[in-house]
């Protein structure tokens, strides 16, 4: 009886509010944790940016780029183990929360959510992509991912006899990542806001970095979670998403295709409503915020599971409670029963 009550309480709860609190906690941890001598690790599946002096960890993308800045000979020698162990620890971190790292832990995601709130306050209309644009733009993050693997390799090796890429590219994605320019600002560090005239390469890359920062601010003002759409971390995470402990599962037989789930989705995934055959409904753009589960009125159509244990399910009662008409409709239903 008690167990049923707990389950009912969780299913009726407002996960979005819980998420906001978790996001703030993670933001403080990743942006200011370093000041409290917290060091979580070097291969985190989220934007814990080492350019930020208060960071308590390091994003895996920078580690991966460093690990791949080696010659072919080194890659197949013991030195190549650095890349494998780095990837291994990334996967270990990742499988615990799966893509919820994006929805709950990513500081850049949290900033985008704050900007969305600001937009709501200013009563500005938000934008969303049509289906064709969505599919096309969705591939951009994979292009970024491939480039951040190939460019460091191209800095130490020659591809097809072509000259090696300039070392000034450094960790190429970090040069354009908004995390490098924005997150240090929260620690009062403005040292990343510059155009580096050291060489032509650094000049171009640092200009792109500032351009992406402007895109990040403006884009996420008009489009919810704008940057997540182009994020190579999201692409990399998706490659391992199937082995994640945390899962978002859909029972297509219970789905009425009302479309509530896709309407509330910040990223704008329509497949979550349209796809009634897949069980694992985590798509590459999904950030596992579980807003879709909250908005689903069909009992058991969408479930959040840890292994095979349900921890949060869509219910009619929970839907009505969260969307404001809970009491009257529930009591009416009871009377009907």
């Amino acid at each position: 009886m008690k167990k049923i009550k707990i389950i009912q309480y969780i299913n009726n709860s407002n996960v979005s509010r819980f998420r906001t609190i978790i996001q703030i906690a993670f933001f403080v941890l990743f942006v200011y944790g370093g000041y409290f001598f917290i060091n979580i690790g070097q291969n985190l599946p989220t934007f814990a940016c080492p350019y930020n002096p208060g960071s308590s960890g390091t994003c895996y993308l920078i580690s991966a780029q460093h690990n791949l800045h080696i010659t072919w000979e080194q890659l197949v020698s013991f030195r190549g183990l650095g890349f494998i162990t780095g990837l291994g620890s990334f996967v270990l971190f990742f499988i615990i929360f799966n893509k919820a790292w994006c929805g709950y832990a990513c500081p850049l995601g949290t900033i985008q959510d704050w900007i969305t709130r600001l937009r709501k306050l200013t009563l500005t209309r938000f934008s969303h992509y049509d289906e064709v644009s969505f599919k096309r733009l969705s591939k951009v993050k994979y292009v970024f991912l491939v480039l951040l693997i190939l460019i460091p390799l191209g800095m130490s090796n020659s591809f097809f006899g072509l000259p090696e890429i300039s070392d000034d590219m450094g960790a190429p994605f970090c040069q354009i990542c908004p995390g490098r320019t924005i997150l240090p600002l929260f620690s009062g560090d403005t040292s990343q806001l510059f155009i580096d005239f050291t060489t032509k390469t650094t000049m171009v890359m640092s200009s792109l970095g500032i351009l992406f920062m402007a895109l990040f601010f403006v884009g996420s003002f008009f489009k919810k979670r704008f940057f997540c759409f182009f994020c190579p971390m999201s692409a990399l995470q998706y490659l391992f998403s199937k082995i994640g402990v945390l899962r978002l599962v859909k029972d297509g037989s219970k789905c009425t295709r009302c479309g509530n789930c896709s309407r509330v989705c910040d990223v704008g995934i329509t497949a979550i409503a349209d796809d009634i055959t897949s069980k694992n409904i985590v798509k590459d753009d999904c950030m596992m915020c579980f807003k879709c589960v909250e908005a689903c009125p069909e009992k058991g159509a969408l479930d959040v599971k840890v292994f095979n244990f349900k921890i949060f399910s869509s219910t009619e009662e929970g839907f009505f409670k969260r969307y404001g008409q809970g009491d009257s409709l529930t009591s009416k239903k009871k009377k009907d029963d």
Binding site: L193, F194, F197, A214
Partner: peptide
């Protein structure tokens, strides 16, 4: 000597 915050500001404003 090779870093310019001013130009970064110009690029940011222009882009925005």
């Amino acid at each position: 000597m090779y870093m310019s915050m001013f130009w970064a500001f110009v690029v940011f404003i222009l882009a925005t």
